[in-house]
Amino acid sequence: MRLIGLAGWSGAGKTTLLAKLIPCLIGQGLRVSTIKHAHHRFDVDQPGKDSWLHRQAGAAQVLVASSQRWALMTELRDAPEPSLEELLGQLAPVDLVLVEGFKRDGHPKLEVRREANGKPWLHPGDPMIRAVAADTPNPAGLPQAGLDAVEAVAALVLDHAAPWRS
């Protein structure tokens, strides 16, 4: 598996870009998975549902399955948050993993930046940023594509994704 992260400030367009990028990469014959770092209190379950009741009762893991998909929820309780490396180990093998969040981790990244946010560039402080998707030129001269140039961003992703050490 190869991986690359999309790093940027909130509102830069990371999720929007990923939603366009995934079908573009799949269209090139790649199997793609994603890992998204979420807010501390996120929940995929709904209060009152059977799986929610199982978790509230103290189940360490709840696996919900149907003919369309399955999902495994693991309660951390007092355990530390898993690292990106640990989470990658949970994925089935694919050609490419796209990581959203985990911007402080040491994996190759593509910076996503929107000038209207008024936020500074991340790449001067992060040597793992290899390329940029932005609406203004980056001052370091890193390889760059426009935010809406999905095929050009896909090329940058493929050029700069690195093998994950499993």
Score class of each variant (00 low, 15 high):
151 E>S: 15
30 L>Y: 01
126 D>H: 05
134 A>C: 04
129 I>N: 08
56 Q>K: 14
62 V>Y: 10
141 G>S: 04
32 V>P: 01
104 R>K: 15
164 W>V: 14
67 S>M: 01
14 K>C: 13
37 H>P: 02
110 L>W: 07
141 G>D: 07
82 P>H: 12
65 A>Q: 10
7 A>T: 15
151 E>Y: 07
86 E>K: 03
43 D>R: 12
103 K>H: 14
43 D>F: 02
8 G>Q: 10
144 Q>H: 04
3 L>V: 10
68 Q>S: 05
86 E>C: 10
73 M>P: 05
135 D>T: 12
115 E>T: 02
119 K>C: 07
159 D>W: 09
143 P>Q: 02
162 A>S: 13
96 L>W: 11
40 H>R: 14
138 N>Q: 13
96 L>I: 13
26 I>W: 01
107 H>M: 13
28 Q>V: 00
118 G>W: 06
34 T>C: 13
48 G>F: 08
126 D>C: 03
144 Q>C: 04
46 Q>K: 04
65 A>P: 06
120 P>N: 00
11 G>M: 01
103 K>W: 05
101 G>W: 05
125 G>L: 07
122 L>I: 15
4 I>W: 02
43 D>E: 15
128 M>T: 15
128 M>C: 10
28 Q>H: 01
23 P>H: 00
28 Q>W: 00
30 L>I: 07
57 A>N: 11
74 T>I: 11
61 Q>M: 08
15 T>C: 14
138 N>F: 06
166 S>A: 14
71 A>N: 03
18 L>M: 15
13 G>Q: 06
147 L>N: 09
136 T>V: 15
74 T>Q: 04
63 L>M: 13
21 L>N: 06
59 A>Q: 05
108 P>C: 12
49 K>S: 14
88 L>Y: 05
126 D>M: 08
40 H>W: 03
87 L>K: 11
154 A>I: 01
80 P>L: 09
27 G>N: 12
130 R>M: 11
